[in-house]
């Protein structure tokens, strides 16, 4: 992960962090996964494309949150099993395992 994160340029990381903070601030009291994922800042993170995958995976490692929609759209993958649906920790681990399998971690 260390070498992968170092591949992300500073401007990208700063933009991601700014959008992440904006999204978190605005969706703290939201239960709806749809509303969280449709938030403009979250959509702009998706729009940053594959460059943010290492940053999203880092977030899942350090502070698991609802990044699964973004990862699924950007990668077109879904490593989450049915029995783990809704378990944020297990869903995060599934994506981190996906990251390892794909040489991203």
């Amino acid at each position: 992960m260390e070498s992968l994160i170092s591949d992300v340029d500073l401007a990208t990381e700063q933009k991601f962090n700014r959008l992440k903070d904006e999204w978190r601030k605005d969706t703290l009291a939201t239960s709806s996964v749809t509303k969280m994922s449709m938030h403009p800042a979250y959509q702009r993170i998706i729009g940053m494309g594959p460059a943010v995958i290492p940053l999203l995976l880092r977030e899942l490692q350090t502070d698991p949150d609802h990044w699964f929609w973004a990862l699924g759209v950007i990668t077109e993958e879904n490593p989450i099993s049915e029995e783990d649906a809704g378990d944020i920790i297990k869903m995060s681990k599934a994506w981190l395992s996906w990251g390892k399998r794909n040489g991203l971690i």
């Binding site: 239960s31 709806s32 996964v33 749809t34 609802h66 699964f68 929609w69 699924g72 879904n78 989450i80 049915e82 649906a85 809704g86 378990d87 944020i88 869903m91």
Partner: peptide, 21 residues
């Protein structure tokens, strides 16, 4: 989840990504 008495997962009727429903 809390209304249903659960504290271990997030309930919401989205299919992809799959949350509990």
């Amino acid at each position: 989840a809390w209304a249903a008495g659960e504290t271990h997962r997030w309930w919401w009727p989205v299919g992809d990504p799959r949350y509990y429903w």
